[in-house]
Each structure stands twice: as structure tokens, then as C-alpha cells.
Design a protein around this nucleic acid. Sequence first.
DNA 1: TTCAATCCCATTGACGCCCATAAAATCCCA
DNA 2: TGGGATTTTATGGGCGTCAATGGGATTGAA
Lengths: 153, 153
Amino acid sequence: MKAFIGTFVNKIDAKGRISVPAPFRAALQAKNLSSVAVYPALTGPCIEGCGLDRIEAMVEAMPDEPIPGVDEDAIAHLIFASARELPFDGGGRIVLPSEVLEKAGLTDQGAFIGKGRTFQIWNPPALQAAQAEMFSRAMAERQALVKARQGVD
Amino acid sequence: MKAFIGTFVNKIDAKGRISVPAPFRAALQAKNLSSVAVYPALTGPCIEGCGLDRIEAMVEAMPDEPIPGVDEDAIAHLIFASARELPFDGGGRIVLPSEVLEKAGLTDQGAFIGKGRTFQIWNPPALQAAQAEMFSRAMAERQALVKARQGVD
DNA sequence: TTCAATCCCATTGACGCCCATAAAATCCCA
DNA sequence: TGGGATTTTATGGGCGTCAATGGGATTGAA
């Protein structure tokens, strides 16, 4: 299975269109998909996306009961209601709806981040900040480890 | 199987008509359906809808899937008795009967939200509130998970 | 005859689809 | 191996179609 790998920064034009990176498109077309599903990420101020097949697999996996449990209902709600199907145009672009743009703070550029089975779309500066924060946290933990080993406080 | 995915807010006119979102219509027409079945949702103050085929599937599934703690007769009553078939008009709209409008507190706008196999119609402000509550609950559970993993209280 | 429900038509505004251009990567051949 | 040619990408813009919505006309029942 082809995975989403790499980082690609593309422009967002006046119509809200952005080119899906060719490698991502290839991964999707290998599954005969001509659209992506996007939804707000729970882990940060960005958009998460994947093939529509992944969403439909989640639908199939949900229990089909007349009265859903409260948790199941909430999950279905948060996932399916907030997802949007975005088909490619002839040039391999998708149109990001305004709510999506706002949610991720996107304006003139979008950074596609491969995450394996899924990908994310970030506002480039926000991505920088998030990555810097992740890096410094990793360094802080390393420092703490070193100090602990030395018995220093 | 095409699923109901996404959120679409449409107007309700003076005649009680509302356009069913084109993607939802497409999912129904893929099954040769030209109407929807709606009934009061048991999980919240909104209307739930699906294709007639699903209602029939629920009828057949009832005896085989007893639901713990809930009287099946009550379910049958709540769903089947209050379900209504609403055919599309030429423009892809349905007419929401007054009881339905009242039940969901609908006035001038209706928000269609996809839930996979079914969809719901909400009063937009009520939807906002419900979503905020579900979201914070999901985040709280996520926090609990993280803390548990760290052994922090 | 009046009210209500259904059907049909008109508008408009957004969206999908198409083509055009430019840059970059790849290929090919000398 | 180098330079030119060709293909693939990324991006911009225009146009046609369809979806969403409003308003009337027609039918049927009280």
C-alpha cells in the first residue's frame, strides 16, 4: 500500500484551490480514488485528510443499530459530520471550503504533510511553530534525562 | 456503499421545503430511491433520516438484535410509528411536516449532517451547542488517556 | 370556493470543467 | 556527459452547468 510521505508546500488561489502533491495523488489513484476526505484534526490546528475509502471503511466498521450508544454516536458525529469529500479537478486540485480554511488558519499557502495512512494540511508558519515546539520539548526531555543520570538538580 | 458525509446548511422556505444536499441525494439515487425516511432522533433534539431501504432492514433486524435494557416495542413505536416518507420534488427538495419542524426546533434553516448510514437535520444553533459538548468530551477523554499514560494526576 | 399540497418554471450564484501558461523534472540522443 | 526536447506539475483564468431557492400554476379535497 502506497503511503503518504513527504512535505509539499503549494499555493492556495483566490478560489480556494490547492494542488494535491503528485505523490499523494498517485497513492490515491492506485486505489482508484478521485477525491480526498478532509476533516479537522483533533491533535492540532490543521486539516487532516485521507482517501474516501478510509472513511467508508469506518462507516462499515460502525455498528448498525437503531439506537446507537452515546459514545458511538458522538464519534460518528465528530468524524462523519465534520468530514468533507473533495474531488480532484482536471489538474489534480481540490477546493478547500471556507470553513476548512478558517479552521486551519490557511490563507495563501498550504503545507501537505505525509503521515502514512493520512496526511495533514498546515498553515506553513503554524507548522514551523508546532515543529519547533515539538523539537524543544524533545530536547527538554533529553536534558532532564541527562541531569537525572548525573544526579544534578 | 456511498455514505452520508459532511455538513450542509440549507434554507427552509415558507412552505416548509428544504433542499436535500446534492451529495446525499446522489447517495440515495445510487440505490434508486427518490425519497427519504425521517423520524425523530432518539439521541438528541433533531430529525434523523435515511433511505427507505434502511427502515426495511431495521424491521428485519429487530427480532434478531435485542438491545439490552430497552424495550423493543418502544423502539418500534418511536421509530416506525413516527417515521415519514418524504419524496423529493423536481428540485430535490423535501417538505418537512410541521410536527417534524417542531420536534427539531427548526425554523428558517436546517443543517444536514452526515452520520454514515444515516443523516440528521438540526437547528444550526442547537447543533453548535451539541457539537461543542461532544468535542469537549472527546478532548477530555483524550486528556485522560494521555495523563494515564504519563502516570500523572 | 377556499385552503392546502404538489408540480412546474425562473433566477442566480456557486461550482465543476476546460484550456492555457510556466516551471520543473525527466528522458533521449548525439 | 551535456544539452536540448518532451512530459509532468503547478497554477491562473474563463465559461457552462447544476444546485439552491423563490414564486406561481394546477390539482384535489373539505
